[in-house]
Design a protein around this nucleic acid. Structure first.
Length: 112
DNA sequence: AAGGTGACCGGCC
DNA sequence: TGGCCGGCCACCT
């Protein structure tokens, strides 16, 4: 929906797109980069809207525990897990194994 | 315009 | 990381 610029949402998308292959990050981390670490919920909200965007690897974004909290919102139920495993990330019981190991610190693009 | 919601996080028990 | 509570901010009805 092109209701508006959605600058906030778009920033989340931009950061999410920076996530390299086989890497993952948390909502809070992204929110922190955006400047509002307390608004991590908004990040998750933005991801919800990102469903329409293929450029946003939402499956690489999980909560700080490494839990696939957002797998509900994906097409099936294990789709998110499948994608992560496809990238070499182990997922057991909706939780990422070695989360801190695959963790990637989100960051804004060099310059836009 | 106001209220409710949400894929969260951090702190405390 | 087990569970509950408060906060925080934008989106939706």
């Amino acid at each position: 929906m092109e209701t508006s610029d959605d600058n906030f949402f778009e920033r989340v998308y931009v950061v999410a797109r920076q996530i390299p292959f086989g890497k993952i990050t948390s909502y809070g981390a992204i929110a922190k980069v955006l400047g509002s670490a307390r608004s991590a919920r908004m990040v998750g909200w933005a991801m919800n809207a990102s469903h329409n965007l293929e450029d946003v690897p939402a499956h690489r974004v999980v909560n700080r525990k490494g839990l696939l909290t957002g797998k509900h919102h994906f097409d099936g139920t294990n789709l998110m897990q499948q994608l992560l495993e496809s990238e070499g990330i182990k997922v057991v019981d909706n939780q990422i194994v070695d989360f801190d190991k695959h963790f990637w610190e989100p960051k804004l693009p060099s310059k836009e």
